[in-house]
């Protein structure tokens, strides 16, 4: 088994890691159809099956990115075709919100994609997966876990710096020292 360590910079061995949340009725079935039809596509997308795209909790997406995913793909039924009437619309709304959120976090919008792929659209599934892998390969790694570590380090250094300055100033201020604590654990 390869013991590749994650490098924060793109190199020849780096491949994007993409987590996909697919609804059971349409997009998961489309992925099955792509399989039955032997439509070859990139292997970087890991599919998690949910009953409906409406089940996609925004936290799932953030969790995946925080755990090291470079992008997240959500697949649901076409509008009007949802097995649960309108779960896909709920998903769409959450997706719009997530788009704004990740933009605020400095994450490129291409790293989150929502596609309506029906059970008959094996070809579309293949296309979307390949497009996404190509797009993310160009963008390079997101490396959120590494960023978190770096941010934590920066915060710690900053705290140390402040503590040292306060100590040098004499007297010190206990509050600053303790205040860094919640920040360090914020991403845990």
């Amino acid at each position: 088994m390869a013991n590749a360590t994650q490098s924060p910079l793109p190199n020849s061995t780096w491949k994007p890691r993409i987590v996909a949340f697919f609804c059971n009725w349409c997009t998961y079935t489309a992925a099955d159809l792509a399989g039955v039809s032997r439509m070859k596509h990139f292997s970087n997308v890991r599919i998690i099956r949910l009953m409906c795209s409406g089940r996609v909790d925004p936290q799932f997406v953030l969790e995946a990115l925080a755990k090291g995913a470079d992008a997240v793909l959500i697949g649901g039924c076409h509008p009007n075709d949802c097995h649960y009437v309108e779960g896909n619309y709920k998903c769409l709304r959450r997706y719009q919100m997530l788009k704004r959120m990740i933009a605020d976090m400095g994450i490129e919008p291409e790293r989150l994609r929502l596609e309506w792929i029906s059970a008959a659209e094996g070809e579309k599934l293949k296309r979307v997966v390949n497009e996404m892998v190509e797009t993310i390969t160009k963008l390079g790694p997101l490396g959120l876990p590494q960023k978190f570590e770096q941010w934590d380090r920066e915060m710690e250094e900053f705290a140390n710096h402040v503590a040292a300055r306060d100590a040098a100033a004499g007297g010190g201020c206990a509050e600053h020292g303790t205040n860094t604590q919640p920040l360090e654990t914020a991403h845990a």
Partner: peptide, 11 residues
Amino acid sequence: EIDGVLAEGLF
């Protein structure tokens, strides 16, 4: 599952 599919070294 999210944690599982993102296992280190498996991409």
